[in-house]
Structure formats: structure tokens, C-alpha cells
Design a protein around this nucleic acid. Structure first.
Lengths: 127, 127
DNA sequence: GATTATCGCTTGTAAAACGCAAGTGAAAAT
DNA sequence: ATTTTCACTTGCGTTTTACAAGCGATAATC
């Protein structure tokens, strides 16, 4: 008993529901404003879909952080689970409509990075 | 002596010069990827220019964080000091070209927030 | 011109988040 | 059947954050 698919009381939310203000920019930053989340979205846009795909990106995200961010992205409905492309039982992730809508932000960041950050390489972003 | 305008050895950099990868998205996130920086940029776009202006924004940024982020923004040449509009001796801040170029990212976040974040209010963003 | 208030920070401290390494159980490959 | 890969979780030390208080310099007020 107590082993249902429902969220139990022990499941502490990984995303705080409180917003700092009603400003849409602040709301967006409350959800995606950290150093890792948009890199996962970038990978998803590039067609990567599995845990190990994200860990093998050049930035080297720690697995506990990745796990936490994927859960947040699920909670905020930016990604959903889906079947793996190779038909295996392992899970994969894909962007929802809400998640795909983040594409313009990622593109804007890519463009700004390319234009203003000296270390940025164009070949890294076939977006 | 030792009291020059140069950076002394004691001035520890508030911005790490190391990039996680050459990806322009990652480079952008290394510079502006946190929960506060783009809110300051938003305020600057809205015409606010002084320390107290930023502290009086509805999100209530802590003053030590604000101080740290302003210094980073100066170091990364996203903002510069300028004379206060009222002619007083107090300093003010303004966006550089590099900083103004962040406008499209802020706009993209506003649009996404408005479209997908329930709590976001349109009136908060006369951008 | 003396006092008071405001401004632009800095410092102290506790709590939270982060980053690294190691471990674990289920699935897949051999 | 054994080994390897995968997708995490756990522990733990370090860093960052948030909240409060303090402080010198400027500006306003009496």
C-alpha cells in the first residue's frame, strides 16, 4: 500500500510555485532562469531526447542537476515523457508546445552570444 | 603608491572568465543566466538607471545581489556608469550597445511569459 | 550650518543550491 | 549468466543566496 502512481506527500516540489512578481519577464525567469535549463531545451531542440544525451553535451551537466531540471521541466509542462525512438523500454523526453515556444528565446541567446561573446563558436549551434 | 586606478590583486573578479563550452547559448547563459541579471536589464530598458530604482522594483532584489550583478554587468560591458539625470553626484547606469542587444531576449521572455505563464500580467511590461 | 534623511553600497550569518564522486537497481547487451 | 549501460539517487563539502543590519558619503531640511 502507499505505492500508487499519485504524487505522495513525500514528493517535495522541485519548483517553487511562488512568483516574485506578475511581470512576465520575472515569471519566465522564475521558471527558466538558471544556468542549465535552457541548455537542456537547446539539446531537445537539436533532437536529443535521452538522459545520457544531455549528460554527453559539452557543458557536462552533473547528473543530479540534470535529474532535478528534468523533473522541473516535467512539472512546468515544458517537456513530457515519450517512448524512446529505438523502441526500448527506456524513457525519453520531448518538448511540449510550451517548450517549443522557448525556441525563440534560445535563438535570441544564440544570436546574442555569437554577436557579443568572443568565445562563442558558430559551429556549435546548428539551430 | 599602490593606490592607482588599476585593478589590484585584492579585486577578485565577480565573473568567472571560464566558459563551459564554446556554444553561444552556453556563453550567453554564462554571462546572463541567473534569476536577477535580466531583470536589471529590463529595468534599464524601462528607463530606470539608479541603484534605488532597481531595489524598488516589485521583485525586491537584495542589495548585495544587486551590487554584485551591477559589477558583473560593468565587467562584461553590458552597462556603463553615467552621470545621473538630475545632475547630482550620484552615479547612474546605462546600457551599452551590447546591453541594448539583450532587448530581444528580454522581449522574447516577456512574450513567452505572457503566453504560457498563468500568473503573468501584461500591464507589467510596457516594453 | 547643524541635523536628519537618503543613497549606494558592505558585512555578517543562516539557509539553500550547486558540483563532484560514488552507489544502486533495472534494462540491455554479450 | 554475466557484464555493461542507463537513469537516476545519495552524501557531502563548497558556493551562492537571502535577509538583516550597519556605514560613510551625499543631499535635503530646519
Amino acid at each position: 500500500m502507499k505505492k500508487s502512481t499519485q504524487a505522495s506527500a513525500k514528493d517535495k516540489p522541485t519548483v517553487s510555485t511562488s512568483r516574485r512578481s506578475p511581470c512576465p519577464v520575472a515569471c519566465a525567469l522564475d521558471t527558466i532562469g538558471d544556468r542549465w535549463t535552457l541548455l537542456i531545451v537547446r539539446d531537445l531542440i537539436l533532437g536529443r531526447s535521452r538522459f545520457k544525451d544531455f549528460t554527453s553535451s559539452p557543458e557536462g551537466i552533473p547528473t543530479n542537476i540534470l535529474s532535478n531540471r528534468l523533473q522541473r521541466l516535467l512539472e512546468t509542462q515544458i517537456v513530457t515523457h515519450c517512448a524512446a525512438a529505438d523502441g526500448s523500454k527506456r524513457l525519453a523526453y520531448q518538448l511540449t508546445e510550451k517548450g517549443k515556444a522557448l525556441g525563440v528565446i534560445v535563438i535570441a541567446m544564440r544570436d546574442w552570444g555569437l554577436a557579443w561573446e568572443p568565445g562563442a563558436a558558430a559551429k556549435m549551434s546548428p539551430l
